[in-house]
């Protein structure tokens, strides 16, 4: 499992907003250009990101092997034909091309996950999404990080309890219903307590925002992200508008 770890790499020192821009920008680019040029850009950005985060590609492959395994299924599904010749190379290659563009995005997102603590993502959300929606998302994301292990612990405990009482012999539906009903009950109980605590601590729309420092080296990162995000326009402009004009 790949999660945040403190460190002093270049990527650790970057502002989360620039890093988010590169991720989303890259996702847009690779989907807009399933071409050799697109792959080259994706590959370059991915290699640069891994270097900046001092993250080994092997550890990414290990952490996301399920994703990669599912992606590898694509070309097989694409090539299989019902009837002669049973496997067609053309569609399989098409599929391979589709699948390949996802790979750099997975690597870049892994670098983000490894090098960015939650509080920075929260701060970035609250600064980028305006007003009350940004406040709710900022606090909400922090709460999901906080409560995920707690609720997971609840569910595991409930599953163990159901099993201990001979639940294995009950039909699946019944077992699932018990786990869900108790899981929901405990979750809503926790939500009630959390509600009180938030209110008692003056949960407000207009707090002091967490500190974020946008420094000189963040500008090129942000510029790269914006350029990637706008890349589909580069073809539209000369390809569609200029000739018509």
């Amino acid at each position: 499992m790949l999660t945040y770890e403190p460190g002093d790499s270049v990527a650790h020192g970057l502002d989360p907003r620039g890093k988010l821009a590169v991720q989303f920008g890259l996702a847009i680019t690779v989907f807009a250009y399933p071409t050799p040029a697109g792959f080259a850009v994706g590959g370059l950005v991915a290699v640069a990101a891994l270097a900046a985060g001092r993250l080994s590609p092997v550890s990414v492959l290990r952490a996301y092997w399920v994703v990669f395994a599912f992606l590898a299924v694509g070309p097989i599904l694409g090539g299989v034909a019902l009837g002669d010749p049973w496997f067609r190379v053309g569609p399989a290659l098409d599929s391979l091309r589709s699948v390949a563009r996802v790979v750099p995005v997975v690597f870049v997102s892994a670098v983000y996950v490894r090098t960015t603590p939650v509080r920075e993502t929260r701060a970035a959300i609250q600064r980028m999404v305006p007003g009350r929606v940004g406040r709710l998302f900022g606090v909400g994301v922090g709460l999901v990080f906080r409560f995920f292990p707690v609720v997971l612990g609840d569910l595991r405990a409930i599953r163990t309890a159901v099993r201990a009482r001979g639940g294995e012999r009950r039909p699946l539906r019944d077992r699932v219903r018990r786990i869900l009903a108790r899981g929901l009950q405990r979750s809503f109980l926790r939500a009630d307590r959390l509600t009180l605590a938030l209110r008692a601590r003056c949960f407000a729309w207009n707090p002091t925002l967490p500190a974020l420092r946008f420094r000189g080296r963040d500008y090129p990162v942000l510029a790269l992200g914006l350029a990637l995000a706008c890349s589909p326009l580069f073809t539209l402009v000369p390809g569609r508008f200029i000739p018509v004009a």
Binding site: R119, R190, R193, L194, A197, A200, R201
Partner: peptide, 14 residues
């Protein structure tokens, strides 16, 4: 200031 039972459910950050 008010502190409730079950401290685990009062935290908003990690």
């Amino acid at each position: 200031g008010m502190v409730f039972q079950h401290p685990r459910d009062q935290f908003v950050a990690g």
